[in-house]
Design a protein around this nucleic acid. Sequence first.
RNA 1: CGAGUUGACGAGACAAUCGCUGCCUAAUUUAUUUCGAUAUUAUUAGGGGGAGGAAAGUCCGGGCUCCAAUGAGCAGGGUGCCAGGUAACGCCUGGGCGGUGCAAACCGACGACAAGUGCAGCAGAGAGAAGACCGCCGAUGACUUCCUCGGAAGAACAGGUAAGGCUGAAAGGGUGCGGUAAGAGCGCACCGGAUUGCUGGUAACAGUAAUUGCAGGGUAAACUCCACCCGGAGCAAGACCAAAUAGGGUUUCAUUACUUUAAAUAGUAUACGCGUGGCUCGCGUGGAAACCGGGUAGGUUGCUUGAGCUAUAAAGCGAUUUAUAGCCUAGACGAAUGAUUGUCACUCUUUUUCGAAAGAGAUACAAAACCCGGCUUAUGUGUCAACUCACCAA
Length: 117
Amino acid sequence: MVTYEFNRESRLLTPGQFQTVFSKPLRFGSNHITVLITPNPEKTNRLGLAIAKKRVKLAVQRNRIKRQIRESFRLNQHNLPGIDMVIMVKSGTDKLDNQEIRRQLEKIWRKIIQRHK
RNA sequence: CGAGUUGACGAGACAAUCGCUGCCUAAUUUAUUUCGAUAUUAUUAGGGGGAGGAAAGUCCGGGCUCCAAUGAGCAGGGUGCCAGGUAACGCCUGGGCGGUGCAAACCGACGACAAGUGCAGCAGAGAGAAGACCGCCGAUGACUUCCUCGGAAGAACAGGUAAGGCUGAAAGGGUGCGGUAAGAGCGCACCGGAUUGCUGGUAACAGUAAUUGCAGGGUAAACUCCACCCGGAGCAAGACCAAAUAGGGUUUCAUUACUUUAAAUAGUAUACGCGUGGCUCGCGUGGAAACCGGGUAGGUUGCUUGAGCUAUAAAGCGAUUUAUAGCCUAGACGAAUGAUUGUCACUCUUUUUCGAAAGAGAUACAAAACCCGGCUUAUGUGUCAACUCACCAA
């Protein structure tokens, strides 16, 4: 079933949920973006964002990156295999424009899907 | 029309598609139920809201909350021309003084060094009740020469001198005339300063008159003195609900011992093990249920109706205040307010049938986190108003 929804069930909310992902992750990444994933026992996809203030200084840029990631996750989640993930970014990501961020994310989604076939 | 100053406004618009958030309405669902409903949970549909002028820096001032105190002082910190505004301010308005600019305007921690203490590199003769390096003079005294013995001339020894030069950020009022051997507030005129009065002003201050020969530099964003102000911590404040686990208290039952009864039926004691012959005492182990209180995770609240916004009128030079009417305008919490596409707007260039067309470019600074009042800093462009200067025309 194809869904484009993104509500609170689709997000990691508590420190405990983040910890389970950090404890035993599989790593995927591109030049600027790192994704840590763990299988979700309930077979739904959940997204958590960890955009450090140290990496992206301005609040406006952090918000822009988060929204781009959420948007891309929202449009591609029906292809993903039921995982919890935490996305982190590296310095310099704030220099990328929206299209470039989106291209990098789509590459990562393809990698994850291939790995879980 | 050109150059500029100040203030105000705005912070691209519209449409389509896919999403987020909390509010209202409806339906379904869940829970409770006195079966009328109530409204807790969740889902769906529809409707109408959803970042800023600085939301930023966190530099001041308040509201609000808790704690401490309720007087007074010390320490520490802050402010610093005058008057007004305000909840308050280090803010704002008006005025004064000083500075910059032709001007409109802009800038200024702008009390006191005559209470005391301290500080000042280099240069320079001398840096604080100063100083003879060059210079000027050498009247007076001494020296040399001439001589009509009255004096004259010379050199520059004693000495005089703050005009000029030199050093420096700064050299102990300035300009001119008189005066003198040369000079000097030594004398005078004007300017400046100080003191005392008078006038205007709420005041800062300004003007003016008389007196005074000038009265002794700078630095207080050096200590200090003077005047005034300041309790501490902050929404992660604070209030409420409260799982699991561990632990605390109370009650009941069970257990155990004894007595009793047909009977764990009733009563009494509280147990059991170890140490001791026994009591006291010490150590260890104590089953089940209910209730009470504290309280962690988590949740709710604080949380947006407020020194609020808009309009009109009145008072005031103004900041601002008052009155009346209308309006409700984000409340998120691993943190919503977004993304994509198209069209139109903005600037420049070219073409032009003056309707427009084509191409290129720009779209900033930056995002609420309890709420207000300010300050400071960042900001691509655009619009409007008032004023100043220059040029031209009348």
